[in-house]
Amino acid sequence: MAAAAAAGAGPEMVRGQVFDVGPRYTNLSYIGEGAYGMVCSAYDNVNKVRVAIKKISPFEHQTYCQRTLREIKILLRFRHENIIGINDIIRAPTIEQMKDVYIVQDLMETDLYKLLKTQHLSNDHICYFLYQILRGLKYIHSANVLHRDLKPSNLLLNTTCDLKICDFGLARVADPDHDHTGFLTEYVATRWYRAPEIMLNSKGYTKSIDIWSVGCILAEMLSNRPIFPGKHYLDQLNHILGILGSPSQEDLNCIINLKARNYLLSLPHKNKVPWNRLFPNADSKALDLLDKMLTFNPHKRIEVEQALAHPYLEQYYDPSDEPIAEAPFKFDMELDDLPKEKLKELIFEETARFQPGYRS
C-alpha cells in the first residue's frame, strides 16, 4: 500500500510507478496490472468513496492506442447498470505532455475469474450472474457493438453480487458484411471463450460470437473449470467437437473457408456428449439454455433477447427493466489503419471533457 500523499506533496508512487492523480484522489492501494497499465484503488475526496484507477501508458504502440481509444469512446457513450462506466479521466493539459491516461471507475471487490478459483456457486448465484451478463449484453448488442472478449476476468463483482462487464478494448461495431482481413492475426481474445466460426472463417462476425462466450462462462460457473481449455488453435476446435459432436452437413455448409471445411470433413465422426453427463448436478433449465448458447452453427445460436426470456431466468426476466441503447454506435473511421500519432490526438480530444474549465 502506498503511503497517503500529504496535501501538495506531488504524485504518489505505487510499486515504483508514478500515479499522478492528486489532489482529488489519494490513499492509493495496488490492485493489479494488465498488459499496459496498473490498477489501484484510491480515495475520492470529492465523492467520499474509494474508486478504481487504471493507469494506461499506450502511446508507444499502435495496438494499445487503438484499444484505449475504443474503450474510452464506447464506455463514455454507454450507460447501463451492468456495464462499468467511466467516472473521470485524468491526463496532462497538453498533448505533448500526455504520456499516461488515468481512467477512474467504480471500485468492484472482485471478478468472476477470482471468485470461481475459490468458491463453488449455488444455482441461485449462477442464475443471477447469468441474468446480469445477458442484461448488459442486450444493451451492448442493441448499440450494434460486439464485445468480443467476454470471459470471467472481464466480469466485475461486488459483495452485493452486482455484476458489471468491463474491458471493451477489443470491441467492434457489428459488421457481418465487412471482410476484416487479418482478423485472426489481430484477434487476441482469450482462445477458450472463442466461437468456432472465428477459427473457421475470417469473413465478418456477428453478435452470436458473444453468446458463445457467455455459454462458455455459464459452463464454467457450473463446474469451476473452463469447458474448452484448448492449448492452441486446432486443439481448441477438437475440444469443442469432442463435446458438441461432429457438425451436420448443414452446419458445414455455413463454413465459407474450404480449407477449414475440408479439415472438419477429414475428422472421424464424434457423438455429442449429453450435458447432464458433463454437469450431473446442474439445473435442467440451465443445461437447456447452455445447449442453445453453445450451438456450433452461429445462425442457430440463441440471441440475447431470447436467452433473457428463457425459463431458467424467469424469476428475473423483465423486458421493461432491460434497457437498450438510445442509438446504434458508430465509429467515424476504422481505427485499425491509423498511425499511433493520430490515435493519440483522438484520445486527447475524447478525454477533453474531463479537463478543468472544459467548454463543449
Rank of each mutant, 00 (worst) to 15 (best):
Ser320Pro: 03
His125Pro: 01
His232Arg: 01
Val46His: 12
Ile89Tyr: 07
Thr94Gln: 08
Cys216Tyr: 13
Leu237Pro: 10
Asp106Leu: 01
Leu289Cys: 08
Lys300Ala: 11
His141Phe: 04
Phe348Pro: 04
Ala219Glu: 13
Leu156Phe: 09
Ala143Arg: 02
Leu116Gln: 14
Ser320His: 06
Glu33Val: 12
Arg353Lys: 13
Lys164Trp: 04
Leu69Thr: 03
Arg359Ile: 05
Ala286Ser: 13
Asn224Trp: 11
Asp162Gly: 00
Glu60Thr: 11
Glu305Leu: 06
Asp106Ala: 00
His299Thr: 11
Ala7His: 11
Leu130Asp: 07
Pro328Lys: 12
Glu305Gly: 00
Gly242Ile: 08
Lys292Gln: 08
Asn123Ile: 14
Gly230Glu: 00
Val101Glu: 15
Lys270Tyr: 06
Ser202Gly: 11
Tyr102Leu: 11
Tyr187Gly: 02
Asn47Trp: 13
Gly245Tyr: 10
Val104Ala: 00
Thr295Ala: 00
Ile126Ser: 11
His180Met: 04
Thr68Pro: 15
Asn297Lys: 11
Cys65Arg: 13
Asn158Asp: 00
Lys340Gly: 13
Leu244Met: 14
Asp124Lys: 02
Glu349Leu: 02
Asp210Glu: 12
Tyr358Arg: 11
Gly204Phe: 09
Cys161Gln: 12
Gly215Phe: 05
Ile74Ala: 05
Tyr316Ile: 04
Leu335Thr: 05
Leu200Ala: 08
Gly136Val: 14
Arg70Leu: 12
Leu112Lys: 08
Leu278Pro: 11
Asn257Gly: 12
Asn224Val: 07
Arg91Pro: 08
Thr94Leu: 03
Ala309Trp: 03
Glu334Gln: 07
Val173Leu: 12
Arg148Lys: 12
Glu33Asn: 02
Lys48Cys: 14
Ser153Thr: 02
Thr118Val: 03
Gly204Lys: 08
Leu289Ile: 08
Glu314Tyr: 03
Tyr128Arg: 08
Gln66Phe: 09
Lys117Gly: 10
Leu290Asn: 00
Leu222Tyr: 12
Trp275Asp: 01
Arg261Thr: 08
Lys203Pro: 06
Leu258Thr: 06
Arg15Ser: 15
Glu349Phe: 00
Asn262Arg: 07
Leu184Met: 14
Met98Ala: 11
Leu258Lys: 05
Cys166Val: 02
Glu349Ser: 02
Leu28Tyr: 04
Cys127Asp: 06
His232Gln: 11
Met98Thr: 00
Ile84Pro: 01
Phe331Thr: 08
Cys65Glu: 11
Glu186Pro: 08
Gly10Val: 15
Lys55Pro: 13
His61Val: 03
Ile240Thr: 00
Leu163Lys: 00
Leu313Val: 05
Phe228Val: 00
Gln355Ser: 09
Phe183Gln: 10
Pro58Met: 15
Pro23Thr: 13
Glu322Thr: 02
Ala282Gln: 04
Ile126His: 08
Glu350Val: 14
Ile86Asp: 11
Gly34Pro: 00
Phe78Gly: 06
Val14Cys: 09
Arg70Cys: 13
Leu28His: 01
Lys272Ser: 05
Arg353Val: 12
Cys166Asp: 04
Ile217Gly: 01
Asp20Leu: 03
Ala260Asn: 02
Gly357Lys: 05
Val214Thr: 07
Pro268His: 14
Ser57Val: 13
Asp100Arg: 11
Gln355Val: 13
Ile74Ser: 11
Val46Ile: 13
His269Glu: 10
Leu130Gly: 09
Lys340Ser: 08
Phe329Leu: 15
Leu222Thr: 03
Phe354Pro: 01
Asn253Gly: 07
Phe129Ile: 15
Ala3Pro: 05
Ile83Gly: 02
Ile243Lys: 05
Phe296His: 05
Gln315Trp: 01
Gln355Glu: 12
Lys151Ile: 06
Phe129Glu: 01
Pro93Ile: 09
Thr206Asn: 13
Gly85Trp: 07
Leu76Arg: 05
Gln97Pro: 14
Leu184Pro: 04
Ile256Asn: 13
Cys40Arg: 13
Lys292Asn: 14
Asp20Glu: 15
Ala7Glu: 09
Leu267Ile: 03
Arg225Met: 03
Asp318Ala: 13
Tyr25Cys: 00
Gly182Glu: 12
Lys55Val: 11
Ile74Trp: 03
Cys254Ile: 11
His232Trp: 01
His125Cys: 03
Ala309Phe: 05
Ala171Asn: 06
Lys164Gly: 09
Asn253Ala: 09
Val49Trp: 11
Arg77Glu: 06
Thr351Ala: 12
Val145Thr: 11
Asp288Gln: 06
Ala189Val: 11
Glu250Pro: 03
Val101Gln: 07
Leu157Ile: 08
Val101Met: 15
Leu343Pro: 01
Arg91Cys: 08
Tyr64Glu: 15
His310Ser: 06
Val188Asp: 14
Leu294Pro: 06
Ile140Tyr: 04
Val173His: 06
Asp44Val: 13
Leu200Asp: 05
Gln249Asp: 10
Ile302Gln: 01
Asn297Phe: 11
Leu116Tyr: 01
Glu197Trp: 05
Ala260Phe: 01
Lys342Ala: 08
Gln249Leu: 13
Glu341Ser: 11
Ile90Trp: 03
Leu157Val: 09
Thr159Asn: 13
Asp20Arg: 05
Pro311Thr: 14
Pro247Tyr: 08
Leu222Lys: 01
His269Ile: 09
Glu322Cys: 00
Ala174Lys: 10
Asp291Gly: 01
Phe183Leu: 14
His147Gln: 15
Leu278Val: 06
Asp111Gln: 06
Asn45Pro: 12
Asp283Met: 02
Asp20Trp: 03
Ile103Asn: 13
Glu60Pro: 09
Arg91Ala: 08
Leu200Lys: 08
Lys231Pro: 01
Glu322Arg: 02
Ala92Lys: 02
Asp321Pro: 00
Pro229His: 14
Ile240Tyr: 05
